[in-house]
């Protein structure tokens, strides 16, 4: 038997792209469960229908590009995109809305740029923003959470998706919306008047955020990504909201706790900002990248036209990532200046 001639290294670690993606999907589970508990099966239907579409679009794109469909489908990246978009979209979205979002994400944001690893923008967020700008009504219609309204059942969810004309759901403004529309009430009063604020940051929302935080912590523990970008983003949001909290006056932008546990903060921090393909690469770069996303999120939430801002903030910073990388190259071994030596 002829001996192989292969260059070193000969050993390879256990990590693979599939496993990275699988673990991201696993880590999103707690958040999905909490969302499903509070808002019903809508999110789950979003994800499942979206995944089916994502795999189809991915296969189609791969076929058109002349790539090995089986080999690339196995990397789970399309499933991750579909899952993230499914979570980000409001539950009980009609089937075509999801299809447009997934098509934008997979075909436009991913394959037109060369497929996995070559996309400068986060595909799920591109899909989300396309929908948000094109269909603002459908994209801001969130169901009232359990405890405030009736939670629709599985059949309702399927009907909402595939027979949207027959579905009539109860929607309600999200806590971020309510705070934004604050008409001269103290924060405390606002909380008393609106049961939707829940204990800290919104009924259902606070638990969903905590669940995503838990998933993110597990990914950190598994060393799927580094702490730099998410922690910088959360710190930046906390810091800015603390500065502009204003003691809870009518002009307050909301407390740090509110901002950290409301909307898509934790989901964004651990599942969107950490997307390796579109984020900065060096550790210092990731700190800057995360911190600036946090800042943009806070600014858009408080002064922008949209209630939440993860998608916009991330896309804007996707633009800046190569620039940040250029200026944050770590000092290579042996390139330290003499004074920095121990």
């Amino acid at each position: 038997m002829a001996l192989l001639r292969i260059t070193s290294p000969h050993a390879h670690g256990p990590m693979s792209t599939q496993r990275v993606m699988q673990q991201v999907l696993l880590a999103a589970l707690p958040g999905i469960v909490v969302l499903t508990y509070f808002f019903g099966f809508g999110t789950l239907v979003n994800i499942l229908w979206g995944s089916l579409l994502a795999l189809s679009f991915e296969a189609l794109a791969l076929k058109l590009r002349g790539r090995d469909i089986g080999f690339y489908l196995k990397d789970y990246s399309a499933l991750v995109t579909a899952t993230l978009l499914g979570i980000a979209m409001p539950p009980y979205a009609p089937w075509w809305l999801i299809a447009v979002g997934i098509a934008s994400a997979i075909i436009l944001a991913k394959h037109l740029y060369g497929g996995l690893g070559y996309n400068p923008f986060n595909p799920a967020m591109v899909g989300y923003v396309v929908l948000l700008i094109s269909f603002p009504v459908q994209m801001t219609a969130w169901t009232a959470p359990r405890g405030v309204g009736e939670v629709p059942g599985l059949l309702d969810a399927l009907q909402a998706c595939f027979l949207p004309a027959l579905y009539d759901g109860v929607t309600q403004a999200t806590p971020l919306d309510v705070l934004k529309q604050n008409n001269s009430l103290l924060i405390e009063q606002l909380w008393e008047d609106n049961p939707i604020f829940g204990r800290w940051a919104g009924l259902g929302w606070e638990w969903a955020n905590l669940a995503f935080l838990a998933g993110g912590a597990w990914l950190l523990y598994r060393r799927i990504f580094t702490w730099h970008a998410p922690v910088a983003m959360l710190l930046s949001i906390a810091l800015l909201s603390a500065i502009f909290y204003d003691g809870g006056s009518s002009a307050s932008g909301g407390s740090p706790l509110f901002h950290l546990l409301s909307g898509a903060t934790m989901f964004g921090a651990f599942f969107i900002v950490t997307d390796p393909v579109t984020s900065a690469v060096s550790l210092r770069g990731r700190l800057i990248y995360g911190a600036l996303i946090g800042m943009l999120v806070y600014i858009i939430r408080v002064s922008g036209n949209y209630p939440d801002a993860i998608a916009f903030a991330v896309l804007i910073m996707n633009f800046a990532a190569p620039f940040i990388d250029h200026y944050t190259q770590p000092p290579t071994y042996g390139h330290r200046k003499k004074t920095e030596q121990h």
């Binding site: 080999f71 690893g117 990504f225 393909v277």
Partner: peptide, 12 residues
């Protein structure tokens, strides 16, 4: 076979 680089940064 090698897959696409996802810039995960594990190498760095």
């Amino acid at each position: 076979p090698a897959q696409a680089c996802i810039r995960c940064g594990l190498c760095a």
